[in-house]
Design a binder for these strands. Structure first.
Lengths: 336, 336
DNA sequence: CTGTTAGCGCATTCAC
DNA sequence: GTGAATGCGCTAACAG
């Protein structure tokens, strides 16, 4: 039924070793024999069995990708970067959603390893000791992407989240804002939570301001929670003149909550986010935000992984990509 | 270095067949031996090699998914449905972006087949003869998802695009609109283009109206093209009282173009889209649209694929999921 | 309930 | 340049 390398060999009147050579573009095959083999392949409709090849060569040309949620626009953008570069280097990716749930992350890491992936790209909340235990059981290269890891012992690519938040708040400060509401992620979430929280705090301190707890709300990074937190801010006396959020989605929620309340953005309240998801320029007013290079995060991580897989020497395995303030229309000077 | 089933067998004092049995939860292993094997596995840190297993059993428990673009919010939602169900049935997915480009689609189909996937989930624009040629070279089950195929010979899951458009336009008609601008996808795109175009046309005809070419614009399904086409409509005399678009993204572009022009939605112009992407309820006014069950499209397609893989008898391999009109705030009766 | 024996389809020595 | 032989790690009969 299925045609194997052996059938091709017989058809072409050569040995299977020779067929293997031409299929793998090995040098040292006489042009004529090469041609005969190609013809046999063509006429039999031979398709190499990558599984058998993987077993024999111990390389599968596939990498495992664990991702929190592919339907999240931030991660799907990163995933596209990953896949494009993977494709460029002739790797395929096995994609696993893990929702930042530790047990599921560990589980998929193990099945990915069972599948003999050549490398592992991990995106998730935070790397714990259990993760490290799982990573330790293998020799395949691992790179962390948009993920925080305390001991800094793995290859990784990310942005400086604290600095990004710091820059955003400083921007607000420079526009005269002093009452800046902050919708933060959970402080257990190192990147979106704690790091950005620290950035907010430090920016305030740099300006000689004290952080006030009543101006900080914890959200879940999503649109609705941006709305909810903003409603709270709207009830404050005095009201904040600006709202900074740890994600663009929450920022968009903030904008709408303000508008639904009958106020204007940025005239009455300015709003600044982080991420620069596509949607950020698909709101009115368009969102001023700190851009993360989402596609590049994935692309660079994947490129790094290919180098690691090929045992190329790489100068720096901990790469920080730069973020960038994107000025649009949701921010203005404070009106006294 | 790597510990194999043979090492475990020796350690546990049994044969490799027995180890294989316990690893595969085969019945008929004495509890005591099972326990011994588990202990050996534990102490050696044995991890089954899925590649070897795949070669021996001719099953890889992975399915190939070809998708137009994972960073597109519509498809990433579908992909989530696919992955969740795949995971539920213990399959992994190899994800390949193909951008609806035929050559790339054919290419990834072939590499997926080389990797011996147990099944193939195809999402793309249109299935051509070249696709059918590629499909013919294999016996693995294939299901088409959100994809049009003229000869109707493959398992598939989709919605009725023509009817969805028909319903949307009828809704507009029922609200008194008679001048309905339509931003369509390319007519070469069977689903998003032609089918929805026909639905628009038929709805008009059912109401005894004639379709007028100047009220139809071709867009590329994205936000910006919604803006561009709407600017054109805004210059028409008389202006349409409503705009219907083939995708939500274009609808949101339409809303913003209208607002940027100084008009109000829906007071001056109503807007209705198709899809119900998350963003549809993250605009002001919130978008009235015809919902496609994106997650379910993926989930049902994957479930169908698992049945096909297991050679279960399935009653109907061509499934049409129902769409639903979602009434929000971008539509009102026409103000005379 | 358990062990023996063959392959699965290919890459990869090592000869020639 | 090319062929023969071996084994990658595992499943799947078949015996017993």
């Amino acid at each position: 039924m299925t045609v194997t390398i052996y059938d091709v060999a017989r058809e072409a009147g050569v040995s299977m070793a020779t067929v293997s050579r031409v299929v793998n573009n090995n040098t040292n095959v006489k042009p004529l024999t090469r041609k005969k083999v190609y013809e046999a392949i063509e006429m039999l409709g031979y398709r190499p069995n990558a599984v058998a090849r993987g077993l024999a060569s111990k390389k599968t040309t596939t990498v495992g990708v664990v991702i929190p949620d592919i339907s999240n626009t931030f991660f799907s953008e990163v995933a596209r970067g990953i896949e494009d570069i993977a494709n460029m280097y002739h790797y395929n990716i096995i994609l696993c959603n893990a929702d930042k749930r530790k047990e599921k992350e560990i589980r998929v890491i193990n099945t990915l390893l069972e599948k003999q992936v050549d490398g592992l790209l991990f995106m998730g909340g935070t790397v714990t000791d259990e993760h490290r235990d799982a990573f330790r059981t293998t020799n395949v290269p691992i790179v962390l992407c948009a993920t925080s890891e305390a001991t800094n012992t793995y290859a990784s690519v990310d942005i400086n989240h604290e600095k990004a938040a710091y820059d955003a708040v400083t921007l607000l400060l420079n526009h005269g804002h002093r009452q800046i509401g902050f919708i933060c992620g959970s402080l257990e979430d190192t990147n979106n939570g704690l790091a950005r929280y620290n950035g907010y705090k430090k920016a305030l301190e740099s300006a000689g301001l004290e952080m006030r707890e009543e101006l900080v709300r914890i959200g879940n990074l999503r649109y609705d929670s941006g709305i909810d937190a903003t409603k709270y801010f709207l009830g404050l006396e005095p009201r904040p003149t600006a709202i900074f959020t740890a994600t663009d989605e929450m920022a968009i929620g903030a904008i709408h909550a303000i508008q639904d309340f009958g106020l204007r953005v940025p005239h009455d309240i300015s709003v600044v986010g982080i991420d620069n998801i596509r949607m950020a320029s698909m709101v009115r007013p368009q969102l001023t935000t700190v851009a993360q290079p989402m596609y590049d995060l994935g692309a660079v991580a994947m490129r790094l992984l290919t180098k690691l897989i090929n045992k190329e020497t790489v100068e720096d395995t901990r790469v920080i990509l730069s973020h960038e303030v994107i000025t649009r229309n949701s921010l203005s000077h404070v009106y006294k």
